[in-house]
Amino acid sequence: MSETVELFEVGPRDGLQNEKALISAQDKIALVNLLSTAGFTRIEVASFVSPKWVPQMATSAEVLAGIARAPSVSYAALTPNMRGFDGAMSARADEVAIFGSASEGFSKANINASIADSLERFAPVAAAAKAHGIPVRGYISCTINCPYDGPTSPEQSARIAKALHDMGCYELSLGDTTGHAYPDEITAMLRAVKAAAPKAKLAGHYHDTSGRALANIEASLAEGVRVFDTSIGGLGGCPYAPGALGNVATESVAARLETLGYTTNLNPAVLERAAKMALGLRGKGQGDV
């Protein structure tokens, strides 16, 4: 039997958050509803951050309230602080995520806090999630390099990974935020993280700026990683990482994994329709299904 690799769909949040033209809650709901039929077990749909900084996510509560929830899917939301966590709970998010950085420059640009301050801010969120029986996931940005600070050492990424794992994150999503990493750099980072937090469940979150995301996924597979964050249609990027383009496309990763002999349990026809819809939301396609 083929080994299964899970793709965590982040398009409705990470894919759309950087779009300048506001997308209606109804269009986001339609995209999530279609993705919910593709075979995913986790879809990230919302972010409870200040709409002042991320206007596209201002409708997050409306989206979570309006989607047709599939019983087999966990619907996730980003929660940078307790206010965000409370919003996610009110909107009935199934799980939440906290998002830190392995570089000081990006931490300050992204969430206006040092790494140390960000970890202090996340601790009560993780504790509250545990008290509510809500899974909490940890994102780590700039695990390879930073647009402000330059290269990130594997040991620094490992230190942050251990801190979030010790805080109670059930999974750590390790990000190549700028999308410039090479496979050997991914390998070195993963080995450092596995040594520092050997019991942690790891996921790869690789942007495709330099066209190496698929190669970096293959390097991660060799290190035992079996979860990858992907965005339908390759939408995304980060407003605080200048020059970083989109996430790696879900449909491309699914196809490559099948070629390599892995199973994703995803429906390629639905992925194709969802990619067309997602690209249509930003004016690159017809947007029909």
Rank of each mutant, 00 (worst) to 15 (best):
E104N: 06
R83Q: 15
L174N: 01
P55M: 13
L31K: 07
L7A: 09
A200N: 03
T4R: 14
N81G: 08
L260F: 05
P183I: 04
S231W: 11
D229M: 06
A249Y: 01
E6F: 11
A129R: 06
L202F: 04
L281I: 12
I29D: 03
F122L: 10
V10S: 03
E223K: 03
K20L: 13
I186C: 01
S252R: 10
Q56S: 09
F228Y: 15
H207R: 00
A109P: 01
M167V: 10
H165F: 12
V5E: 03
I160H: 00
E19G: 03
G224T: 07
R83A: 15
I111M: 09
E258L: 08
V227N: 12
S157Q: 10
T152E: 07
S72A: 15
V32K: 04
Y170T: 13
G211L: 06
A197D: 02
A241E: 04
T263Q: 13
K130E: 14
L281P: 09
M1W: 03
D229G: 09
R212N: 12
A275R: 05
I140N: 06
G84F: 11
E223G: 03
S47N: 10
P124L: 14
R121F: 08
A109F: 02
A274M: 07
V32S: 05
N145A: 15
D176T: 00
F99A: 15
A128I: 13
L271D: 02
T230E: 04
A197H: 02
D176N: 02
A38C: 13
N18V: 13
R191P: 01
E19N: 11
T259W: 01
S210M: 12
Y206W: 12
G133W: 06
S157N: 10
G243I: 11
S103R: 12
T59C: 14
P268I: 07
G15E: 05
A68I: 10
G287H: 05
G224D: 07
D117C: 02
S60I: 14
K194C: 02
I140R: 04
V125W: 09
L235Y: 08
Y206T: 02
L245D: 01
A158Y: 05
R212G: 00
A25I: 09
S72M: 05
A113L: 13
P151I: 14
V63C: 06
I43S: 06
R13Y: 11
I98V: 15
A127M: 11
I43F: 07
M167F: 06
S114G: 14
G39Y: 06
E258N: 04
V136G: 01
G168H: 05
S36D: 03
G11K: 00
A77K: 05
T41L: 01
H165L: 00
G100Y: 02
T177W: 00
S101R: 08
L119Q: 09
E3A: 14
A77S: 12
P147G: 00
A274Q: 07
H180K: 07
Y170E: 11
V45C: 15
G237W: 05
A249T: 04
R212W: 02
G261N: 03
Y139L: 08
K199D: 15
A269L: 12
E251P: 08
V270A: 00
L266D: 03
S50D: 14
T263S: 14
A91S: 12
P55E: 11
V54H: 09
F40Y: 12
G261H: 05
A196N: 02
T177E: 01
E95C: 14
G150Y: 11
V193F: 07
R159P: 00
D149R: 08
R282I: 15
L235S: 09
P55I: 14
A275E: 04
N81M: 10
G133F: 05
